[in-house]
Simulated assay, not measured.
Amino acid sequence: MPQGLNSLAPRNSVYHRAGPGRTGSSAGLMRAFVYLGSMAVSAATAAAFGAHASAGGPHRPAWSTLGAGALFLLPALFDRGLRHAGAPAHSR
Rank of each mutant, 00 (worst) to 15 (best):
M1V: 15
P2D: 15
Q3D: 13
G4W: 04
G4D: 07
N6D: 15
N6L: 15
S7L: 05
A9F: 07
R11G: 04
R11M: 11
R11K: 08
N12G: 09
N12K: 12
S13I: 13
S13L: 11
S13A: 12
S13G: 05
V14H: 07
Y15A: 14
H16G: 05
R17T: 14
A18H: 02
A18C: 08
P20F: 03
R22E: 15
R22C: 06
T23E: 04
T23Y: 00
T23Q: 13
G24Y: 02
A27P: 07
A27D: 09
A27G: 09
G28I: 15
M30G: 00
A32S: 10
A32P: 04
F33E: 03
L36G: 02
G37S: 06
M39S: 04
A40I: 09
V41Y: 00
V41W: 08
A44S: 14
T45D: 03
T45Q: 13
T45H: 04
A48N: 08
G50F: 13
A51S: 09
H52K: 14
A53K: 02
A53C: 15
S54M: 07
A55F: 02
A55Q: 01
G56E: 08
G57S: 15
G57P: 01
P58V: 03
H59V: 11
R60M: 06
W63V: 04
G67Q: 10
A68F: 01
A68T: 06
A68C: 08
G69R: 07
G69Q: 07
F72P: 00
F72M: 12
L73N: 00
L73E: 05
L74T: 02
L77H: 01
F78L: 12
F78I: 11
D79V: 00
R80W: 01
R80I: 08
R80D: 04
G81M: 04
L82S: 05
R83W: 01
H84S: 14
A85H: 06
A85P: 06
G86Y: 02
G86A: 11
A87K: 12
A89P: 00
S91W: 01
S91M: 12
S91D: 10
